[in-house]
Nucleic acid binder design. Structure first.
Lengths: 226, 226
DNA sequence: GCAAACATAATAGTAATACTATCATTTTTA
DNA sequence: TAAAAATGATAGTATTACTATTATGTTTGC
């Protein structure tokens, strides 16, 4: 499993990068160190100039791979969701009971960290932190409709579709499968954020995880009600 | 009711503004037109220079009221949540049944637009659009912990606390009242966004509203289970 | 009615950001 | 080994995100 996932090449939509960062050593260093730099100083303070200095390369070289930092964020987000989709497919494939599939899927998208595996060059636990604090910024823009048309959010949406389908199988009578799926995925990221920064408005802490909250939710909304 | 709420002065935390915008005509114009400008061009493209041009005043005059556009966003967000808290308190006060209180509270924070009232100078339906697309940006920053310590998110958190309290009254046995409250408030904003931009990952449309989804949720998680 | 206090306007200036362009140099590959 | 491609170095531009200074109203208190 580990080696299998280490070799996946995420499917990234045309237009997100100018030159495929996986095609060169420099490209890979840009992605790897870019992720670390965003984690350290935050996406707002992150610039290609600072990244260039960090990896001892020229600002203009970074611009040859990505148009701007927004596209860079779209790239690493697509990478993350691609990896999530892959895990979702693999880890539910062998489960015959659809309730088990749902529990597994919810666990995957709500869990604290990806403990079991790590790619050759991207640190997934750091990437997960960035997704929690910055992923929503990829679509909370004036350009969202254009970029959605260009397919920049395709993989993320496909993750939601897959969970939606499982929800429908578990409870065909439930009226809001898409909203429940998107609520769980987005909500879990939000609960992780609250756990770190606004502890008083979440029930999650050292002993209670966002996963517990959402497993209880689907359990009560779908499974118990059958 | 209308006149009562028209006269509320939101409680804004010290440090969010340099000079109270409610203390002068220029200050009010900055807020009113700033809200409209952010709605038109988006928060990322919004600058104090452009706002100055729009209201025929000097950039430096705007800087006398707000340190930067982030503080401006914090200001209008506090304004919004202050107004929400006020409605929450007033509109649940006369309800004796706690289930009715919960339904009312959920409706308030999930409803499409504030139809019934409007302040003297801020357009609430425009403000609501900004909250949906930009409020999360106020706390998804590296400075969140400092700013939280300074009380910049106090009113928002108080709205969540109030809903949490109602949830606890409705169902004392439920294990995740804080998370459910924050999930509903944040999730409703997200579902509104999806309804507009990512229609395929939400069950909400012309006939189904985020309110329906969340009323069904609390109904199944709390009320039915009693 | 006038001075003091205060608010706003106008202008200028700085450092950083977000790029683009050009040309030289190194590396790859055919 | 020459051509092509990738990278590096340098320079330059427009905009952003401010700060500072000085001038010009405007309000208010006596």
């Amino acid at each position: 499993m580990k080696t299998l996932l280490q070799n996946i090449r995420p499917e990234i939509q045309d237009g997100i990068f100018l030159k495929d960062p996986e095609s060169s050593t420099l490209g890979k260093r840009i992605v790897k160190e870019g992720v670390l730099l965003i984690d350290e100083i935050g996406f707002e303070a992150f610039t290609f100039k600072k990244l260039g200095e960090r990896i001892q390369t020229n600002e203009s070289s970074v611009y040859r791979y990505f148009e701007n930092k927004h596209k860079f964020l779209l790239y690493i987000s697509s990478w993350y969701w691609s990896w999530m989709e892959c895990r979702l497919v693999f880890e539910t494939a062998n489960l015959v009971n659809v309730n088990d599939q749902l529990v597994k899927a919810v666990l995957l998208v709500t869990e604290d960290t990806a403990d079991d595996l790590s790619s050759d060059y991207i640190d997934e636990s750091v990437l997960k932190r960035i997704i929690i604090s910055d992923f929503t910024k990829t679509f909370l823009t004036k350009e969202v409709d254009d970029e959605n048309r260009e397919g920049f959010f395709k993989i993320y949406k496909r993750v939601i579709y897959r969970i939606t389908e499982i929800i429908k199988e578990v409870s065909p009578a439930y009226s809001f499968p898409e909203s429940l799926a998107s609520n769980i995925v987005e909500g879990a990221m939000h609960q992780h954020f609250l756990k770190q920064h606004f502890k008083t408005i979440t029930s999650c802490n050292e002993s209670v995880s966002p996963a517990d909250f959402y497993i209880n939710m689907v359990n009560n909304l779908l499974i118990k009600s059958i």
